[in-house]
């Protein structure tokens, strides 16, 4: 009765990009059978494509709507009233508990915590601190941290390069002490620190959240937020901030490269750095072309192949470790 239903489904799958090779073959065969099938396919394509612009336009009263949002926020922030009645028995238990807690606290407060030391050898090493903070140490990096965190601040000290995902705790800031008295202070966030002894530089890169980086000789320091990078040059005591640093500053930790509306010029330099190759982008018009791709660590040949497919680049490989991209169309 509805013999074409199955093919209508296959056409929908084709448009939504989930058709399998077998299904595609069956569809091709059916299309070749009759011009009516091709017409049906053309109509389905038109339906799919024209539906794409469907979006009902709203022009709401923004003032009124925002007041409703505010009302909801106020209602949520007002804590509900609770009536608490404690029996005398419960009170006695609470008092005993308080006494125990107080003695634990004083023990912790007055006995200095033991310091632990972790060193990464030839490979990246990950460790978790008692407060839930995760740290990835890059080759040869070293970190010292207490067995438990006391007082109002969480202190660790770092040599080398590391990436931090700090457990959020506004009451106890997390502080990374660096050699030379420089420090990085955060509440809860994801960021990387690289100490480069050869250049005598320190780099701080923030993936998310907020970080206060204060070199000893620049006590006011600088506050960095998502995707910002600061470089402190100890020779010149210059502190420079890059407000839109590459996402891939931390590629050693994520294990690959990702791009979100990244200009091709920057894509190429990230690829060069990560794969340690040399890439020439011939067509200057392509430099600003914005590229988006999920995290990948495929071989460089594969990465270039898919760039070539997307943007119609011609790829040449004149010598080992050297690639030339020419042509290209940034539609």
């Amino acid at each position: 009765m509805h013999s074409n239903d199955n093919y209508i489904l296959l056409l929908s799958k084709k448009h939504s990009g989930e058709i399998s090779p077998d299904e595609q073959a069956a569809l091709d065969e059916w299309l070749a059978q009759s011009p009516e099938h091709s017409l049906l396919a053309a109509q389905m394509k038109a339906v799919w494509e024209q539906a794409g612009s469907y979006q009902k336009e709203f022009s709401p009263d923004l003032d009124a709507a925002f007041r409703q949002v505010q009302d909801r926020i106020r209602a949520e922030e007002r804590p509900p009233l609770r009536v608490v009645s404690l029996g005398s028995r419960l009170l006695r238990i609470a008092a005993a508990l308080a006494l125990i807690l107080a003695s634990v606290w004083s023990y912790r407060e007055f006995s200095a915590p033991d310091m632990m030391r972790a060193v990464a050898g030839a490979e990246t090493r990950m460790l978790s601190l008692p407060d839930g903070t995760d740290i990835w140490l890059r080759q040869n990096a070293e970190i010292a941290y207490p067995t438990h965190f006391d007082g109002n601040e969480r202190h660790v000290s770092l040599q080398g390069e590391a990436y931090f995902e700090v457990a959020h705790n506004p009451a106890r800031p997390f502080i990374v002490d660096l050699p030379n008295g420089d420090r990085v202070k955060v509440l809860g966030t994801k960021f990387g620190i690289r100490l480069d002894p050869a250049l005598n530089q320190t780099m701080v890169f923030v993936r998310s959240g907020k970080v206060h980086f204060s070199p000893k000789l620049q006590p006011n320091g600088v506050i960095l937020t998502e995707r910002q990078k600061a470089v402190y040059d100890r020779n010149s005591t210059q502190l420079t901030v890059d407000k839109y640093a590459s996402l891939n500053e931390l590629a050693w930790q994520t294990g690959g490269l990702e791009f979100v509306r990244t200009p091709m010029e920057e894509v190429v330099s990230d690829l060069e750095r990560f794969y340690k190759v040399d890439i020439t982008l011939r067509n200057t018009a392509m430099r600003a072309c914005l590229h988006t791709a999920p995290l990948t660590n495929q071989p460089i040949e594969k990465v270039l192949e898919s760039l070539a497919l997307t943007y119609q680049f011609r790829v040449e490989h004149p010598a080992p470790g050297q690639y030339v991209l020419s042509g290209g169309d940034c539609q």
């Binding site: 929908s12 011009p35 389905m44």
Partner: peptide
């Protein structure tokens, strides 16, 4: 997809000539 196609077809009032045009227009 069937319902939407019908709406589209009804709207375009597909005569044989239109069908032919559509075929080329949508490159099928």
């Amino acid at each position: 997809m069937k319902l939407l196609r019908q709406a589209l077809a009804r709207h375009a009032d597909l005569s044989p000539v239109v069908i032919l045009a559509l075929k080329y227009w949508w490159g099928m």
